[in-house]
Amino acid sequence: MPMNAMTMPTPTTASTYEHVQRGWLIPLCLYGTAVFAAVILNIARHEEDLPWAVWGLPVLLLVLGHYFSALRVRVDAREVRVAWSWDWPAVRHALDSIEGAEACKHGWWYGYGLRWTSRGWLWNAQGAAAVRLRLRGGKCFHIGTDDQAGLLAAVNAALAARGAGAAPLKL
């Protein structure tokens, strides 16, 4: 039977990698700034009438501190998904859009959080280790991680197994 007449394989259930990295530096900085802002605002309100909306600033900093406290990475049979604490919004890269992956390191000057660097986007909760996804079209996306080997293996396994499926045998 010619190949094009065969039943196309249906996707198999591939293993899923999921890892959450918790960072303390971003929350510490943002919580600290929130407290500092609250103290300044408290002092300032005795001297002039402040609109209540300014109290949104320390609240916003507390919320952002919590939001950027963890980076969640998921690799499954379809995509690599990266999101911060609340799992939304997430950046998703379909496996078909990824040409390859490799381990890399970033200097401290790249900072933490969401970064646009000369080497492409970097999402990093904390630390220097990352995995670089080389995307079709020449762009790169960097995922900071404290499980560099595990994430790299998961991405490479998913890339190798993409398109894998099971077709029935026929006599």
Binding site: M1, M3, M6, M8, P9, L159, A160, A161, R162, G163, A164, G165, A166, A167, L169, K170
Partner: peptide, 12 residues
Amino acid sequence: EICALITATAPH
């Protein structure tokens, strides 16, 4: 045909 299926099972 079986050989083609094996290749198509995991092409990458």
